[in-house]
Simulated assay, not measured.
Amino acid sequence: MSFTINDLTIGQSASFTKTVSETDVYLFAGISGDLNPAHVNQVASEQTQFKGRIAHGILGAAFISTVVGMYLPGPGTIYIGQELRFRRPIHIGDTVTATGTVTEINVEKNRAKLETTITNQDGVVVTTGVATVMPPTAE
């Protein structure tokens, strides 16, 4: 199900939850070409401030894309932009929840803004931001 601009309401929200696996991190590294040792080298990553491998921040941001493209506004939505702030790392094995909450609606321009947040299994906010989207039009 998709929501058109006229279906959206301020405060409306949707979420997507996923446990980040080692496979997810390696596949994302291969797809993106980002082979930073912080993500793929256990020995090197143990020397960092994180004391082990972490997921790519943008991998987490992809879960926000899932919210936008699959749940709110949903299929047919065009992602216009995304502001992000990476507050804490996502560790392999973390279960994260990406949430989008409608904060602005511009019917004339068919645009909406969503506050975006990713939290881990402990309720710690790991990523914040704002998504600008163009909801699908009525069929």
Rank of each mutant, 00 (worst) to 15 (best):
A62Q: 00
A62M: 10
D34E: 03
T97D: 08
T116S: 01
E22W: 00
L35Q: 12
G30V: 04
V96S: 07
I58H: 05
S32R: 01
P89S: 10
V67N: 01
S13K: 15
K113R: 15
N6Y: 14
T99F: 13
G69V: 01
M1V: 11
S32Q: 02
A38S: 13
R87V: 15
V20R: 01
V133H: 09
N106Q: 11
V133K: 02
I31G: 09
G123T: 02
T101A: 06
F50E: 10
E104K: 15
E46H: 01
A44T: 06
V40K: 00
Y71R: 14
F50Y: 15
R88V: 02
E139L: 09
I58D: 04
T48Y: 02
R53T: 07
D94P: 04
L72W: 04
I64F: 06
I31Y: 10
T95H: 12
V107G: 07
V67I: 03
E108P: 14
T77I: 10
P73I: 04
V68Y: 00
T128P: 04
L8E: 00
A62G: 15
H56V: 11
V126I: 14
G30R: 02
A131E: 11
L114W: 03
N106T: 14
P136V: 02
G33F: 01
Q82I: 12
E115H: 12
S45L: 02
I54Y: 04
T117D: 02
V125I: 14
G129M: 11
T103Q: 03
Y71N: 02
Q47Y: 06
V40S: 00
T132W: 07
T48K: 08
A112L: 12
V96M: 13
G93H: 13
N120S: 13
H39R: 06
E139R: 04
D34C: 03
H39M: 07
R111I: 11
T128K: 05
G52I: 05
V125S: 11
I105S: 03
P135T: 02
E46D: 12
A14E: 14
T117R: 11
G93D: 13
A44D: 10
P37S: 07
A98E: 07
G60F: 08
Q49H: 07
V124Q: 15
A98Q: 10
P135G: 02
P135N: 06
D94H: 14
V133D: 07
L114G: 00
A112M: 15
L27H: 03
M70D: 05
G69C: 08
V102A: 13
Q121I: 05
E104W: 04
G129V: 13
